[in-house]
Amino acid sequence: MLRRCRSLIAVALLATMPAAFAGELTVAVAANFARPVEVMAPVFTAATGHQLRISTGSTGKFYAQIQRGAPFDVFLSADEARPALLETEGRIVPGSRFVYSVGRLALWHATPGRTLTPDTLRADIAGRVAIANPKIAPYGAAAAAAIAHLGLTDALGPRLVHGENIAQTFQFVATGNAAFGFVAWSQVSENGAVVRGSAWLVPPDMHPPIRQSAVLLRHGADNPAAVAFMTFLKSDAARQIIRQHGYDVE
C-alpha cells in the first residue's frame, strides 16, 4: 500500500515537472486574430508546456504601447507596416519578422440564405454599407480598394459608415443598422463555409493582400517560451488552425 502510494506520488511529481520548467509568454494580438490564438493556446501548451497569456487590442494602440516599453513578448499585428516600423526602431529581435497570415475580405449581410454578388450592392440601394475605417484598419483599406475595383466608389460614398475596427464593422451589420458590410472572412466562416448570415468571399485580386506580420519583441528575446511560440506559429498544426479560421498562409 505504502509502496503504491509512493509510486503515485512519484508519478504526480513527474507529471508536474514540465510545468516547473515551463515558461510563460505574453502575446499582443490584433483583435481580428484573437480567436485563432485562443484555439492555438492549448495546442501550444500541450506541445511545449509553455503557457500563453493573450492580450487583444488594436494594432495602432499596441504599436504605441510597445514603443513605450509594454511588457509583450510577441506581437501579432493586423498589418505589415507597424511591425516593419518596430524593426527599424530596433524594438524587435532582428530577422524575427514574418507574415503569419493573410486576411480575406467578405461582403456580408446579416440574414442567412441570400446569394450575394457585387451586383447586390448595385441593385439593393437601400441602407448603409459598413466598412472598417480605411485610414487605420487594413481591412478597411482593402474594402475601399475592392469598392474602387468594382467601380462603386461614387455610388456607395454617401452610404458608407466607418467602424473603428473590423469587429465594430461586423456589429453595425449584425445589429441591422447597416444593410451590408465588408468584414473579415474569418468573422463569418468556419472551415471555409459561411456560418453567419450570407457572405460573398471577395476575390484576392480585387484588393492589396491583407498580410499580417508577427514579430519577436526585444522584451521576449531571452524568453524560451516566446521563441518557442514563434517557431510554433510556423508549424503545420498552427497553419492548419489559421486556415480553418478563414485566413490564407504564405
Partner: peptide
C-alpha cells in the same frame, strides 16, 4: 459610424490620429 460633419467629433478624430 465616423461620418465627417455628422458624427465625427473631436474625441473620435483624436483616436483616429493616434491609430
Amino acid at each position: 459610424g465616423n461620418i465627417p460633419q455628422e458624427t465625427r467629433v473631436v474625441a473620435i478624430q483624436i483616436y483616429d490620429h493616434v491609430e
